[in-house]
């Protein structure tokens, strides 16, 4: 209990945010001057964190994620053109889904 209280305290969360760049669990810290000085993107992270939703509960999730993720990654690092990555992912998904339908 004491450990949980300590780890979630403002001081500990500030230290974790500054030292390890992990998103703090306390909202006030996203605007904390000391944190923002080290990590200027914190304010945007808060917007993102608040807009987050849990994964959809569907048996398709794993299939979609495992198929699409490497293609998106390839497009992001420039290994593939985005159109090509989407086309490749689409082709695979069609093949997989055609078995299920």
């Amino acid at each position: 209990m004491a450990l949980a209280r300590h780890l979630t305290s403002e001081a500990a969360q500030r230290a974790i945010a500054i030292g390890a760049a992990l998103s703090p669990t306390r909202q006030a810290l996203y605007r904390d001057p000391e944190v923002v000085r080290g990590h200027p993107a914190m304010a945007q992270l808060q917007t993102l964190a608040l807009a987050g939703r849990p994964r959809p509960v569907t048996p398709y999730y794993l299939l979609l994620s495992a198929t699409v993720q490497p293609e998106f990654s390839a497009a992001l690092v420039g290994v593939k053109r985005p159109e090509r990555a989407i086309a490749d992912a689409g082709k695979r998904l069609n093949f997989f889904l055609q078995a299920i339908r």
């Binding site: 490497p70 990654s73 390839a74 992001l76 690092v77 290994v79 593939k80």
Partner: peptide
Amino acid sequence: GGGPAGTTE
């Protein structure tokens, strides 16, 4: 794990 972008898969 096969990444980045599947280049070691």
